[in-house]
Design a protein around this nucleic acid. Sequence first.
DNA 1: CCGTACAATCTTCCATGCAAGTATGGAAGC
DNA 2: GCTTCCATACTTGCATGGAAGATTGTACGG
Lengths: 230, 230
Amino acid sequence: MEAGLRIDLVERHKAQPVNQWVYDVLWANIIQLHLNPGDAVSENEIASALKVSRTPVREAFIRLVKDGLLEVIPQKGSLVSRIDLGQAQDARFVRIAVEKMVLAAACVDFPKDGYELLTRNIENQESLFRAKSFDRFLAADNDFHRMLYAGCGRESVWTEIICKLDFNYDRLRVLSLPSTSHGVIDQHREILEVVSKKQAARIEKVVERHLTWEVIVTLVTECPDRFFKK
Amino acid sequence: MEAGLRIDLVERHKAQPVNQWVYDVLWANIIQLHLNPGDAVSENEIASALKVSRTPVREAFIRLVKDGLLEVIPQKGSLVSRIDLGQAQDARFVRIAVEKMVLAAACVDFPKDGYELLTRNIENQESLFRAKSFDRFLAADNDFHRMLYAGCGRESVWTEIICKLDFNYDRLRVLSLPSTSHGVIDQHREILEVVSKKQAARIEKVVERHLTWEVIVTLVTECPDRFFKK
DNA sequence: CCGTACAATCTTCCATGCAAGTATGGAAGC
DNA sequence: GCTTCCATACTTGCATGGAAGATTGTACGG
């Protein structure tokens, strides 16, 4: 029965539509791997667990499918989608391409107060890493990149496109964070240096190293097979 | 009443879920501007026009909202979303970044039979342009780029990411096609030349010119204001 | 003539019931 | 013991009725 379903509830904002709330709850639980890739879920199961009817659950499911986080098999069932490594690699390819152009633009023109914001953000990352609050570290990490885009007038490219590129990539980051955070912070420091000293020639290497695929590959071997597609 | 609603029906494949069919129909009509940006639509209106219940229509609406092609205002109404030029510009930025990397890879390594496929595709574009079948020309255009990506092993980047980046960009292309097709074909010929002769130095200029923003700007002034956001 | 209150009529949102397809488990036949 | 068949309990897909909010038209009062 539903007894075995463990879901972290998310605060429901006032006047928020039910279907939106259901979506937020499921999204957070999937991204943070409280619901594991491959786990079976059903509309009825979620509906009774959240004490709502099937309709808003179903509508949330449809949106999660578009996000690539859920898979619905007609008349059979639904499951939290396994992580598609090929898809994640595609997203990484796009992100590398964009990040290079953004850094190139940042090396030409970047607001003066931006450097200080980035510096403070990195300090914040360090304290969060020492405190082992990985979810907030992830948020700070995202914020670091957002500020880079914002600095060259492309904030919406980050928030509207790159962030939504592939949520599977986010799940991979959650999986790998505890073991890789420290290296990531060093790389951020390096990126800041490249931008502040306008060393455009280093962009190529820095970006490739920061968005490396190697850590992913070694990580995958340590995770259950059922987490991944194929 | 619904008498004024003009919708081109799309063939429904056998055993295709109703909601998928509704989605396909609306998607095609929005992209091809049979439903204009800003047009009001309602669940009931579409449901009765397509002779289905409101549920599959509503489910199609949810997916169209995620595509950025529809806007739903609770308890008020829904409308075909106006084209967001800022969003389109963001998509263009990403696409330029990716296309440069793809062409760079293609200049290093490209399958031999790829050149012939591209050449034949361009010839096809010409005949379709002369025949003024702009929808099929658009398909050939997309296919040209898909083959470029495929040539360097990144076909899925094209089909899974770039194509879905921003459907508003597609609507802009539909608007501009009749007046700009010929220049586009010349640019395709130029791209093929760059790749076949491995002239990596020309990539920058060629890509920027092909995905230029200028034609969009001049185009916008010729269209009704209600087509665009803000 | 103008402004206000109210009622009719839209809209989306949600709950519920039923239909149709799929897997499972057990009983019957060999 | 093994296979076959069928009842049953799931699943998602779809239709429908009503709830809640927003708009519009209209009647009424000044």
